[in-house]
């Protein structure tokens, strides 16, 4: 797959001298969903805004569909749709006019059927004649999404699209993202919600203090970095860990009714066989066994705190 977006050593220093991007290099493949995870102030919005033309980069280069975002900004920006983090909308205008305006602004000819379709998918059709100021926060967020989709972008940026929105919208959002992906749209989203990255992303990038710490296939990331837990449920609780198990990294849980064994999937051997042997040696009877994979959240917290140290 060719890269639809290439970012090369992108730097941004704000006028006060603060360096918000410290040389970001990244290729994004056509049709993938990339989630950018990072704490507040990491530079996610700065990165997106620079690619979209809202902020001037200090150095480095970006191409979209092979078009440089500065020298060939028209071609580059024509491919991009942006759903900004802040809800910025003209309060006195109607939903319909606002969305139609966006399509025209991007030079696309009028297509009412398409806009109707987008508004219906976002449950905005009934509100099309309402003025923006009459809508709830969640509805306004939907309008922002409709505006970005109205000009049929090939690359869609969603800057914290589900921050502070209801569960319903989050689900709708994920459905829309899945649908767009099916039509080949490339999606870059930033999020605080790690479950979101986990649920919909193909790749995950972790950004902190203006630097991209890593970009990985989500699956790889989780298996490579992930710790797993094995929970052994006993048919009869024990008061303390038996002697035979002392050398294993074990915790008692469930009032002595379960043993929890934490191991690293990156390790040469997991030690599970030895553990289970020793459990049998100690005369304990197993009722059930289950494993749990650690979430992206654990990985993320590990990475960011490791970086700060």
């Amino acid at each position: 797959m060719p890269a639809i977006l290439t970012i090369r050593d992108l730097r941004k220093s704000y006028s006060g001298g603060f360096e918000a991007l410290k040389g970001v290099t990244l290729d994004i493949e056509e049709g993938e969903i990339l989630a950018l995870l990072g704490p507040n102030g990491a530079g996610k919005t700065t990165l997106i805004s620079t690619i979209c033309g809202i902020i001037t980069p200090s150095s480095g280069s970006v191409t979209v569909g092979g078009h440089d975002i500065i020298n060939d900004f028209r071609a580059a920006r024509s491919l991009i749709g942006l759903v900004p983090q802040e809800i910025n909308l003209e309060p006195f205008e109607t939903v319909w006019n606002t969305v139609r305006f966006s399509r025209g602004l991007f030079g696309k000819s009028r297509n009412d059927a398409l806009i109707e379709d987008i508004l219906r998918k976002l449950s905005l059709w009934d509100k099309r004649k309402n003025r923006i100021m009459e809508l709830s926060g969640g509805m306004k967020r939907r309008v922002l999404i409709a505006k970005a989709l109205s000009h049929e972008p090939r690359v869609l940026f969603l800057d914290e699209p589900t921050a502070g929105v209801d569960v319903e919208l989050r689900k709708d959002m994920w459905n829309i993202v899945a649908e767009l992906k099916a039509t080949g749209v490339t999606i870059i989203l930033t999020t605080h919600y790690i479950e979101e990255a986990e649920a919909i992303a193909d790749r995950v990038g972790v950004i902190n203090a203006g630097a991209l710490l890593l970009v990985e296939e989500k699956e790889n990331l989780m298996t490579r970095m992930g710790k797993k837990q094995l929970e052994v449920q006993l048919s009869a609780p024990v008061a303390a860990l038996p002697e035979e198990l002392a050398h294993h990294d074990l915790q008692l849980a469930n009032g002595g009714g379960a043993l929890i064994y934490t191991y690293d999937t990156r390790g040469e051997r997991t030690g599970i066989t030895a553990l289970l042997n020793d459990v049998a040696q100690a005369g304990l009877v197993l009722a059930d066994v289950q494993t749990r994979q650690s979430s992206l959240e654990d990985i993320f917290v590990d990475l960011v705190s490791g970086d700060a140290a």
Partner: peptide, 18 residues
């Protein structure tokens, strides 16, 4: 001034317009 004030200017700046 109004788009600047309410933030909708982001769309002008990111649109393929000169």
């Amino acid at each position: 001034y109004f788009p600047k004030f309410i933030g909708t200017i982001y769309e002008l700046l990111s649109a393929p317009v000169n």
